[in-house]
Structure formats: structure tokens, C-alpha cells
Design a protein around this nucleic acid. Structure first.
Lengths: 204, 204
DNA sequence: ACTCCGTATGCAACTCTTTGCATATCTCCT
DNA sequence: AGGAGATATGCAAAGAGTTGCATACGGAGT
């Protein structure tokens, strides 16, 4: 499980509670590896059972108690071993590309709408990443070693967002050349054999 | 389940057996949504039970019999509904970015090695995608509508590979500025107090 | 008092995906 | 006859991730 390793990685610099980790996974590391709080709590228990992290209860004033986790030497070993071993890059699965294969068989409007939404979303993300980079990661070569890797992840994020934004623009331009479905019509799979007009049909 | 929809999408143009689909998911659609044969056979059964596809046995000559699946009108409806509804883009999870957060805390050599491997792999993929584009998708605006979406998915693949290759080069250049861990030193977890000097050490 | 919100942790059920194993037919080669 | 390899389909179990629900404390607002 790579989430285990993402959590251990997050614990490299500081001890954190499940709640802290949840917030960390909503930003920073979470840009590259999303996780829900349920998953995080479960995984922390598993890591604790394995001896990769150690838990200590912390009483708090004005808010509920919490359980803070620290990476153990054993956890560090596991992390190092993982870095050396694993390698498989699983292809990113994205619904949108599957949907694109449906163009010509269905109303393209919802797909265009989704691309427009993505365009906006990736624009926001790009702005966020660039802000972070400009504030904390300008001049990458001058960064302490421990920040260089994070800078590189951020740089990949920035490149990715830019690439996607450019692609959205290409896609919208090309999709604009399609005959628009008026109301519910559209599409069509031309003629005769086997699969005549399975698309949304207008006639009877 | 999006795999259901990917399978239904693959059945838009032609009826296919589980085996055919498996091969199709090793290329084409599979560039964007990977699936093993086990998963495909399971999902086909589920789709059949739901009435989204219909199965028919086909006796063959010179090879084992097969079961060929066709998309039903019901399946077409489900597919259209899915295209309209869903939207959530799950962030691509990639181990490599998690590993990068470990730079400065562990030997960077395996990470560099992985980036080099990715560089090569993405180079191969880029060449493959460009070959497909040049052969079958030159002049996107002249393509039949049903191929425009596929072209766009391919274009996204090409942009992605190029982006990643550029990033690998940036990453290798920056990682080259790190002090290299000599033999087995590195890493480690140093002793006593919580977390001083977790980086690879060279001095003594 | 009451409710909402942020902090903090958790269970249970389900879906999705991966991994390992198993089986069978047919062709081609040795 | 035997084995390799492509074709063709499947089960079972484990791992990973999602969804819905539940609980509890304390502060702030109505």
C-alpha cells in the first residue's frame, strides 16, 4: 500500500495526529496522493501494529484529546526499502478520456462542459501551485536538500496543469467543429449494418 | 464503476469477446484505462446481469469457442447517462512524487534511477503515440466525428508524455546537485533525539 | 437552551483492483 | 507423443479505496 508510505513520508519532518495528516493530505502531499480521513485512521492503526509508527496520546486544552504518531526506526527502514524497490507507474485513470471515445456516438455537449470545467479547475490549481512555488521554492538550486524533492513534485504539478490547460483549449476548438446536438438529437452512427442508430434517437 | 463504462464504450463500434476486450485494453483505450482480463470478465458478467450488454456464444473453427458481447439499448442509455453525470477527476496517484518528498532523508540514487527509467519509458510511449497519430490522426479536423474524440485522447497522451520527459530532465539536473550517498551510508535514522540530521551523511 | 461549526476519532459495508491460480482447446514444432 | 504458445474463460482471496454513519468535546452565535 502506497498510502502507508505516503503517511510515513509525512511523518519524516514532524509528528502528527490523524487529524493533522488529514489536513496535510488536503494540501501538499495530498496534491499527489489523495486520502480520506477514514483511510488515514485505518492505515495509522495498521502502521502502529506493524511497529512502523508509535502512538502517544496527547491531552489538549479547549479541544478534544488527540493521538500523535511518530515514525519509528523500523518505519524509516520500511520507507527506505520501499523507495528502493517499487517502480510500477500505473497509468492515470481519467474518466474524461473514456468519455472522449464516445464522441460521435452521443451528445458532445456534456463532454464539452466537463472540459470547460476542467479548464477552470486546472487554472485555479495552476495559480495555487505557482503561488506556492514563487513564495517558497523560487531558486530551486539554493533550497536545502530536503526541499528539492518537494520542489520537483511541485514543478511536475505545474507542468501538468499547464499541459492540461493547453490541451483543454485544443479540445474545445476541435469539438466546436462538431455538429451540435440541438436539443436531444445528435450523434448518429451512420447507417445500415449491425448497429443502426443506437445513439439518442429523435425520430420514432 | 468506470471500467463498466470503458467496456461499454469499447463495444460501441463492434461486438467483442472478453479476450478481444483484453487485447483492446492493452492498447488504445487501455492507454487511458488499464484493466486485467480477470477484471474484464467479471465486469462483463455484471453488465450482462444488468442488461447493459448481451452475450452470445460463438463456435469457432481452429480455436476455442468464445462469448461475444454486444451493447444493448439499455447499455447505451447507461453510457449516455454516465457521460452526463459524472465529473470527478481523481488526482493521479503516482508513487514517484511521494518518493520525492523523501529526498534529503534518504539515498536519492534509487529515485534518480527511477526517473531515468521513466524518462526512457515515456520516450518510448511518446514515439508510439506519435506514430499512431501520424498514421491515423493527421489532420484532426478532417477526421470523421467518431474519431475526433479518440484523437483528442491521443493528443492528451502525447502532451503528457512530452511534459513528463521535460520534467524528468529538470529533475535529473536538480538531483545531480545533491551530495551523493557513497555506498551504503546514507539514509538512516539517526539515533538519539528525535530528528536531527536525517539526511544522507557523508562526513562522520 | 439550542444549534452549528471545528476538532478529533472511529466502525461497517461496499466497490474496485490486484494477484495467484486453474482450466480447456487448438496449432505448430520437434 | 510431447511441449510451447496463442486463444479463451474463469474462481478465490486479499488489498485498496469509497461511502455512510456515529460519537464526543468545546466554543460561538441565536
Amino acid at each position: 500500500m502506497a498510502l502507508s508510505h505516503a503517511i510515513m513520508t509525512a511523518l519524516l519532518d514532524e509528528d502528527l495526529s490523524g487529524y493533522d495528516l488529514t489536513r496535510k493530505f488536503e494540501t501538499s502531499l495530498g496534491f499527489f496522493w489523495a486520502a480520506s480521513h477514514q483511510q488515514i485512521y485505518q492505515t495509522l492503526k495498521k502502521l502502529d501494529a506493524e511497529g512502523a509508527v508509535s502512538a502517544r496520546a496527547v491531552a489538549q486544552d479547549g479541544r478534544p484529546d488527540k493521538i500523535v504518531y511518530a515514525l519509528t526506526p523500523r518505519g524509516h527502514q520500511l520507507l527506505d526499502a520501499w523507495i528502493r524497490e517499487e517502480s510500477r507507474a500505473r497509468p492515470a485513470k481519467d474518466d474524461l478520456f473514456v468519455k472522449l471515445y464516445n464522441v460521435g456516438h452521443t451528445d458532445p455537449a456534456p463532454i464539452e462542459a466537463e472540459i470547460r470545467a476542467r479548464h477552470a479547475e486546472h487554472g485555479r490549481r495552476l495559480a495555487l501551485y505557482e503561488k506556492i512555488r514563487d513564495r517558497h521554492y523560487a531558486q530551486p538550486r539554493q533550497l536545502p536538500d530536503a526541499r528539492k524533492g518537494i520542489y520537483l513534485a511541485l514543478s511536475a504539478g505545474i507542468r501538468q496543469e499547464r499541459m492540461f490547460i493547453d490541451w483543454c483549449e485544443e479540445a474545445l476548438a476541435l469539438l466546436a467543429t462538431l455538429p451540435q446536438a440541438d436539443s436531444e438529437a445528435a450523434t448518429t452512427v451512420d447507417a445500415d449494418s449491425s448497429r443502426r442508430r443506437t445513439g439518442p434517437k429523435r425520430s420514432g
